[in-house]
Simulated assay, not measured.
Amino acid sequence: MILIIGGAGQGKLEYVLQKTGLGPEQVARDPETARSRPVFAGVEQWPELEENELLAANPEIILICDEVGSGVVPADPEQRLRREQVGRLCCRLAARAERVERIFCGLSMVLKGEGTWN
């Protein structure tokens, strides 16, 4: 599994599609579809994702997640909890990932893993 993180609008999906040669039709937007597609974009929308089930069904998936923990801390306790859940999910995913990259302004920073994409 590969984990791609970065802020909204930083070019994460475009980067993955360019690196893999995949098309937008091969990108899942929900956990159920992600079981059978090579890329899952929008992981941050699913903070209670059952990652064990997803990775068992699709161990080579590329997960794309917006960073949600930076910026102004929300006054709403539910929004703070959601940010915490997404952050913890990303920590678990990063620990299991073969490769983790952060995309900023369309540029990649490799946080974990060596070499180039397959």
Rank of each mutant, 00 (worst) to 15 (best):
S70P: 00
E32F: 03
I4E: 01
Y15C: 07
E50I: 01
T33R: 13
E78D: 13
E60Y: 11
E50L: 06
G21S: 08
S108D: 05
T33H: 04
W117N: 07
G7C: 03
R35A: 11
R80N: 03
E44Y: 00
P24C: 05
K112I: 14
R37S: 00
F104L: 15
Q18P: 06
V72P: 00
P38G: 01
R92A: 12
G42L: 11
P31M: 09
W117S: 00
L54V: 04
L93Q: 03
K112C: 07
A97G: 04
Q85N: 09
V73G: 03
Q10C: 09
V27W: 00
K19D: 07
L3D: 06
I103K: 05
G11K: 09
L107F: 12
K19Q: 15
G87L: 06
N58D: 05
G7S: 10
L81S: 11
W117H: 11
G69F: 05
R96T: 07
A75F: 12
E44N: 03
L63T: 02
A41L: 08
R82W: 11
E25G: 01
P47C: 07
A28V: 05
R37W: 02
P24H: 12
V68G: 03
V16S: 02
I4A: 08
G115C: 12
P38Y: 00
A8I: 12
C90G: 01
Q26E: 15
E32Q: 10
V100Y: 00
P38Q: 01
A28M: 04
K12P: 08
P24R: 14
E67R: 11
L55T: 10
A56I: 10
M1T: 00
C91D: 10
L63K: 06
M1E: 01
A8P: 11
G113F: 09
E50H: 08
G9P: 08
G71P: 02
P77G: 07
V86G: 10
K19L: 15
K12N: 05
P74Q: 10
V39F: 07
V110D: 03
L63G: 01
G115H: 12
R88M: 13
E84I: 09
L22R: 07
R99N: 02
R96I: 07
P74T: 04
S70R: 14
R88Y: 01
E101V: 13
P38L: 04
A56N: 12
L89P: 02
R35C: 06
R37C: 02
L55A: 07
R80C: 02
F104R: 15
P74R: 12
E44R: 02
D76N: 15
T33G: 02
I61W: 00
G71K: 13
R83K: 06
I62M: 06
P59L: 12
Q18W: 10
E101Y: 06
R99F: 03
E84H: 13
G113D: 09
G87R: 05
E32L: 14
R99P: 04
R99S: 10
G9Q: 10
L93M: 08
P59S: 09
E84Q: 13
N118Y: 14
I61M: 02
P77Y: 08
R83I: 08
P24G: 06
